[in-house]
Amino acid sequence: MSAATMKTCRAVMALAFAALLAAPAPAAAQEAPDALVKRVSQEVLAIVKADAKVQAGDQARIREVIEVKLLPYFDFGRMTALAMGRNWAKASPDQQRRLADEFRSLLVRTYSGALTQYRNQSIDYKPLRAEAGAADVTVRTEVVRPGQAPVQIDYSLAKGADGWKAYDVIVGGVSLVTNYRDEFNEQVRAGGVDGLLAALAARNKGGGAK
């Protein structure tokens, strides 16, 4: 497939996806957080299990799946602010926007590598324990893989103007946001917000971790 065809394909897919989202907009806005997590994770799992390109490790295709299927349900602004902690206020609006962008790229990168490992898994969804009007909930799931201990994966979601969005993922007790809070803190301490931005950018350009 040429780059141009690829681009067209992606544009068409994005359009189709937008249409899909736009059509039942009122319903989608009211989709319960646990229903959202279940629908999105099942969609992604179905693709991982069926898509030959994903299984073959085609990075472009894997990134596309993540961008289209997963990322619309993450609130990167909130995630970045939480990971920054008190350093968030030290960043200018422009720095904040760039930080959220870089953080987003880093997570795409992380997810792209992990996606193909989930071929043989199934997901158990725990009943949602939240009060009726809650605007911040944790959806608990358990990932089961043959021959291995199950892993609990929890999603923290907050309700915003355009529906529920995830702002943290907790894998086996390890919160992504908490992990990055240490990382961000350390970089800001050493080189300021610009130092952190530079470290994230270098990381996203393909450089290895220290």
Binding site: L106, A114, N179, R181, D182, E183, Q187, G208, A209
Partner: peptide
Amino acid sequence: LVDRAAIDRYTFIRRSYLQR
């Protein structure tokens, strides 16, 4: 996963371990 996700591996491993 640490290779892909970490900015500084040492810090990432430390916080993951303590949280776990």
